[in-house]
Simulated assay, not measured.
Amino acid sequence: MPDKRPRGYQPGWKPRAHTVQLLTAVERVLARYAAQLPLTIRQIWYALVSDDVLAKQERTYKRLVELCGMARRSGRIPWEAIRDDTETAAEPVAFTGVTDFQQAQLEAARAYRLDRQAGQPARIELFCETAGMVPQLAAVAEPFGVPCYSGSGYNSLPGKRGAARRAAEGGHAAVHIMVISDWDPSGLHLFTALAEDITAFAATDAPGIPFTFERLAVTEDQVTELGLPTAPVKATDRRSFAGTSTTQAEALSPAALAGIVHTAISRHRDPDALDAVLAREHAERQALLHDLGHGPH
């Protein structure tokens, strides 16, 4: 029997009235968090749950996935507004000719930047449990030169070893790892395993460099203070957990998450050191552009 599911673009899609209402609510969420786009579908779902548009049930999430798919196929929701992490790509670098290559050099010069963590008392790295949140976190962390990593759940062994090796090569006296994970047994175990494994690798790969670890979110206090939706602890999960309910990190509004990350990074930065790096970065960028014939004379 042929598959009747929609394929390709669907410009002629005509949703029913109740679907239009839900779609309008989705568009309101995307507009509300325009500064944090792209969002994951689960983040949109949690926002709709908080807005009392949807019940916190798995069936409403599945319905939302189907709705967003059709809305993107039809052109009503921009493809770029929603974060997808199911595709892995490896594309070769190529140019159409010399002019294209020269334009790429110009763009590279305009994007020139230094290590904005240079001169700071400690190198900061940001880890998150959900890969789909990386672009939002990176938008906050990038101006500080702070990298963001995710293992889509439990961080990989090479990823944890990589943190120790970066510390050895980075020239910083200390490293501070910030973590965002769910408030549940898995999220807390992820944090503990990350801290223990990185510390153990660092004992060999970066001896003498102290590591500190901080869970930025989700915390039990944040669940209460922000009124985040919760779910019962799974009866089959026997790991120790102090909480009485669970909350996913994607339940945090994108704006609240951005504020938490920005505040935490700022608390650990020397603003004078950052300003010095930015001033040097600007001067060197202008020199590069001048050499390419595009800077001030």
Rank of each mutant, 00 (worst) to 15 (best):
residue 52 D to S: 11
residue 73 R to V: 05
residue 190 L to I: 15
residue 132 G to H: 05
residue 1 M to G: 14
residue 80 E to V: 05
residue 72 R to Y: 09
residue 80 E to N: 09
residue 145 G to L: 03
residue 1 M to L: 14
residue 287 A to F: 05
residue 124 I to W: 01
residue 84 D to R: 14
residue 219 T to S: 11
residue 52 D to V: 06
residue 296 P to A: 13
residue 45 W to L: 00
residue 166 R to I: 06
residue 153 G to E: 05
residue 288 L to Q: 12
residue 112 Y to S: 02
residue 64 L to R: 07
residue 203 A to P: 02
residue 67 L to K: 06
residue 89 A to R: 15
residue 123 R to M: 15
residue 18 H to S: 12
residue 75 G to M: 12
residue 275 D to R: 14
residue 163 A to R: 07
residue 239 R to Y: 05
residue 8 G to M: 11
residue 97 G to A: 10
residue 205 D to I: 02
residue 168 A to G: 06
residue 222 Q to K: 08
residue 24 T to S: 12
residue 262 H to Q: 14
residue 99 T to F: 07
residue 204 T to H: 11
residue 174 A to S: 12
residue 115 D to E: 14
residue 195 A to P: 04
residue 135 P to N: 07
residue 32 R to F: 02
residue 76 R to P: 00
residue 110 R to F: 00
residue 274 L to N: 10
residue 105 Q to Y: 01
residue 76 R to Q: 07
residue 134 V to E: 04
residue 133 M to R: 02
residue 259 G to W: 04
residue 71 A to R: 01
residue 297 H to E: 15
residue 271 P to I: 11
residue 145 G to R: 02
residue 59 R to W: 07
residue 53 V to E: 13
residue 129 E to G: 00
residue 74 S to D: 07
residue 66 E to Q: 11
residue 175 V to S: 00
residue 120 Q to V: 06
residue 111 A to P: 01
residue 44 I to F: 02
residue 132 G to W: 04
residue 47 A to P: 10
residue 1 M to E: 08
residue 130 T to L: 13
residue 278 L to Q: 14
residue 187 G to Q: 04
residue 292 L to M: 08
residue 156 S to A: 15
residue 43 Q to H: 06
residue 90 A to V: 10
residue 66 E to V: 12
residue 238 R to N: 12
residue 123 R to A: 10
residue 163 A to N: 01
residue 272 D to F: 08
residue 53 V to T: 14
residue 215 R to N: 03
residue 231 A to D: 09
residue 93 V to F: 08
residue 172 H to L: 02
residue 149 Y to K: 01
residue 255 A to P: 01
residue 202 A to W: 07
residue 9 Y to Q: 11
residue 79 W to N: 06
residue 236 T to C: 06
residue 183 W to K: 01
residue 149 Y to I: 03
residue 2 P to Y: 09
residue 130 T to Y: 12
residue 186 S to A: 15
residue 295 G to D: 11
residue 296 P to Q: 12
residue 181 S to Q: 02
residue 59 R to Q: 15
residue 184 D to F: 04
residue 121 P to Y: 04
residue 162 G to Y: 03
residue 252 L to Y: 03
residue 279 A to G: 02
residue 271 P to R: 11
residue 196 E to R: 15
residue 221 D to W: 10
residue 252 L to F: 04
residue 40 T to C: 09
residue 240 S to R: 14
residue 47 A to E: 13
residue 255 A to L: 13
residue 15 P to F: 03
residue 38 P to S: 09
residue 45 W to M: 00
residue 295 G to C: 14
residue 275 D to I: 01
residue 26 V to W: 00
residue 116 R to N: 06
residue 104 A to R: 01
residue 150 S to H: 05
residue 16 R to C: 09
residue 276 A to T: 14
residue 115 D to F: 05
residue 2 P to S: 13
